[in-house]
Design a protein around this nucleic acid. Structure first.
Length: 350
DNA sequence: AAACTAGTCAACCGCTAGTCA
DNA sequence: GTGACTAGCGGTTGACTAGTT
């Protein structure tokens, strides 16, 4: 099949930056006629641009719902966790960040986040430590040293401190507790409700103030905008380790992962926020390191994440736990003692 | 002050997938 | 079934800006 050219180049169509006049023409046309018909739009709107260019200008810049300005820390956190799940599927990531375009996120990833992860010794592709496993030092910029402390690092740490209101609690320990609590205190009925709900698409009308859950098609939950609040709830942070039951060693102990995780319950309007510095705490050797994903496979973990978003009971329980934990009144046995419980949970997903 | 360099981001390009006649 | 058309995606480019020499 001969591919038809997208633009009639011979007509001397304009390229490059858009002028305010062009924007105005496009806007007024779209206001009158709505989106669509991009191929014929330029001519009708009196623009010497190709339809593709018009669509892009609208999608990335002129659309009224576009949020501009700096990315917030929550958004940044969301991008990282969503990237861990979707990879370079920018449109899928963008669905989880209302008001942000795929292009903007892609640019932000490439210019900010990626570099910071690399600087911290985290592979932005695998989200694992660059130093762990195979030698991936080639991914590091020549002049950069993973361990060096720069002003940028200091900035990151400051930001993390601002977010981490309970700095005495490491993310590893915290997640260990949550994992235990999850198995011990969230009763099976609640859990089954979460699972049976099939995710936020079919659950209660519980809404959050931080994000709105809109319903996409049923077909692609992983990329639907319903994922949006997830990052506020269960943020993997830098972690994209493929969960695997083999994380239990022969003694039934959980093998530590290299996670430094972020956990925020902003979605329940609670200022309490556990958010380790996702880039500043690559404590690979932390014995206590564990996370939900350790005992759930990737798909199940995502499902749980999505489901939890709209499950008020779970959120309340979790919030209560966070408060108790903040006051250090939670007594949690080592996680390996609860493997039976995890097996039970696994059965629900089985 | 000028030249150079690096970072940022809007826009472009090439491609694929879906739809429809 | 085929081909034209359209929308959308991800990678790349290049103009612009800020910082440095």
């Amino acid at each position: 099949m001969v591919r038809t050219p997208c633009c009639k180049a011979e007509l001397g169509l304009k390229k490059g930056a858009w002028t305010p006049e062009e924007d105005q023409k496009l806007l007024s046309y779209l206001n009158r006629h709505g989106e669509g018909g991009w191929r014929t739009l330029p001519e009708k709107a009196g623009l010497k641009r190709c339809g593709k260019s018009c669509r892009l200008r609208w999608a990335n810049y002129l659309r009224p719902d576009i949020k501009r300005g700096e990315f917030t820390e929550d958004e940044e956190c969301s991008i990282i966790s969503l990237h861990a799940l979707h990879g370079n599927k920018w449109s899928a990531i963008a669905r989880g960040l209302p008001g942000r375009t795929d292009n903007e996120i892609k640019n932000y990833w490439n210019t900010h986040i990626k570099k910071r992860l690399i600087k911290k010794g985290i592979d932005p592709v695998t989200h694992k430590g660059l130093n762990s496993g195979t030698d991936k030092s080639e991914n590091l910029p020549e002049k950069q040293n993973v361990n060096q402390t720069t002003s940028d690092d200091a900035l990151d740490n400051d930001k993390a401190k601002k977010n981490n209101k309970n700095s005495g609690l490491s993310s590893a320990r915290f997640l260990n507790r949550v994992a235990n609590r999850f198995g011990k205190r969230i009763n099976q009925s609640v859990l089954s409700e979460i699972i049976a709900s099939g995710g936020p698409l079919a659950t209660t009308s519980h809404t959050t103030t931080t994000t709105s859950v809109s319903v996409d098609s049923e077909s692609d939950k992983s990329t639907s905008s319903s994922f949006a609040p997830t990052s506020n709830l269960l943020c993997h942070g830098t972690v994209a380790t493929t969960p695997d039951s083999s994380n239990f060693d022969v003694d039934g102990n959980l093998n530590p992962t290299s996670s430094s995780s972020t956990f925020s319950d902003a979605s329940v309007n609670n200022p309490l926020m556990y958010c380790d510095n996702f880039v500043g705490n690559n404590n690979v050797d932390d014995e206590d390191t564990i996370e939900f994903s350790t005992f759930l496979n990737d798909e199940d973990f995502m499902m749980l994440e999505e489901s939890c978003v709209d499950n008020t009971a779970f959120m309340k329980e979790l919030t209560r736990f966070l408060h108790e934990d903040e006051n250090d009144v939670v007594d949690v046995p080592p996680v390996y003692e609860r493997q039976d419980m995890f097996d039970e949970i696994d059965n629900y997903f089985g």
